[in-house]
Simulated assay, not measured.
Amino acid sequence: MATLDAAAKARLDLITENLAETLNPEIIESILAEGRNPRIYWGTATTGRPHTGYFVAAIKIAQLLAAGCEVVVLLADIHAFLDNLKAPLELVENRAKYYAKVIRAILESVGVPTEKLEFVLGSSYQKSPEYTMDVYKLSSLVSEHDAKKAGAEIVKQSANAPLSGLLYSILQVLDEEHLNVDAQLGGMDQRKLFAAAVEWLPKIGYRKRAHLVTPMVAGLSGGKMSSSVQDSKIDLLDGPDVIQKKIRKAEAAPKVVEDNGVIAMVEYVLLPAAGLKGKKEFVVERRDAEPLVYTDIAKLKEDYQNDILTPQSLKPAVTAALTSLMAPIQEAYQASPEWQEITAQAYPPPVVEKKQRKVKDKGTRHPGAQVQAKAQAEAKAEVEGEKKAQELPERPKAEN
């Protein structure tokens, strides 16, 4: 472990705050000990519309910037296409633009200046000869089993899956080298991929990187918050009425804090966001008692387990705080015709095909109709056969 002075130690504490895990932290420590700024990237595949879970990464990015890190945001458009065609090629470009708008708006909503961020489009370098050759090199050294295992919690799994899903893991590992970073930031669901990067990159002569692992946020319906599961998440452009409805329907059993998506929203989004804005507290108004004011999540969880804080009090407080937090994002969207046009092109409404009017088959609706029709056809054929027989000239009898 590198020896750090007080200033470097403070920077390290901010970099690692609220992380679930740090892989190879000595890499970050040695950079700080030298007085340099770590270069860190966070990547997002431009597939479904970003939701409130993206605040977790945004808040961590804000802390990295405050710690003097260089932060790169990778808009992984090619990854989006490779992940079982979640983003068709004709939509990828506009979805990348949409993500750039949303990510900037999230950071600005919590008071983070975005001019220090570097946005990189994956396709801007992932089609270069150097990158392509590295894909070939790594593909020759990584087995199908290992590639599938690395992306198991990221890439959509299906029977007889396309080969592109295996390439996804290889590309993400190579991004660390080609973005020239010291570390990658990502969720706990990417941990297997991070471990693969540490193992795979040295095989083709590249150095290993550190990995900053953020905790996973429980969805409103329990389990992982996901863009593809509507009931689990709140879209960043959802209005106040929609936010209220989704929070009201969210699973939040009394006295149960595990997999409680409403408490997770406070822990990983609302309290940290309030801290970035200068006053880290979460207020729960109560009808017949004094408000409950929380400055740390441990006390909130304790009160919830003891039924001092009830779901009936917690949900309206989360609704109010989240509505306030998201208001600047929605105001920016409403004020930007460009953003609205990008949204329409990135996420066009599904085409609903008109149902063809079926011609009624009366024969199938009347028992015996088909049998009767067959009998009539046979009778007609028999009559026509007899008629033809009568029309044939009589064959002369053979002479004895």
Rank of each mutant, 00 (worst) to 15 (best):
L4T: 02
D5N: 14
E17F: 01
T22D: 07
E26Y: 06
I28R: 03
S30L: 04
I31V: 15
R36D: 11
R36K: 10
R39D: 01
T46I: 13
G48R: 00
R49M: 12
H51K: 14
A58G: 10
V72M: 02
A76D: 05
A76W: 09
D83Q: 04
L85K: 11
L91A: 00
R95M: 12
Y98R: 03
R104W: 02
I106E: 13
L107G: 04
F119C: 07
K127R: 13
S128C: 01
P129N: 10
E130V: 14
Y131D: 06
K137T: 11
S140V: 05
L141Q: 15
S143Y: 08
E144K: 15
H145E: 14
H145Y: 12
I154F: 08
L167V: 11
L171P: 04
V173L: 03
L179G: 07
D182E: 10
D182K: 03
Q184W: 02
G186K: 03
G186I: 02
G186T: 00
L193V: 10
V198L: 04
W200T: 05
W200F: 14
P202M: 10
K208A: 12
R209H: 14
L212M: 09
V217F: 09
G222L: 05
G223Y: 09
K224M: 10
V229E: 14
Q230L: 13
Q230N: 11
D231T: 15
D231R: 10
D235S: 15
D241P: 11
I247P: 01
V262K: 03
V269I: 15
L271V: 06
L271M: 09
K279C: 09
E281V: 08
V284C: 04
E285L: 11
E285C: 01
D288E: 08
V293A: 05
Y294A: 02
L300F: 07
D303C: 04
N306H: 15
T310H: 01
S313M: 09
A320F: 02
Y333E: 02
S336D: 10
E338K: 11
I342S: 04
A344Y: 00
A344Q: 12
Q345Y: 03
Y347C: 04
Y347I: 00
K354W: 02
Q356P: 03
K362P: 02
V371G: 12
A373F: 09
K374D: 04
A375S: 12
A375H: 13
A377K: 10
A377E: 13
E386C: 12
K397A: 12
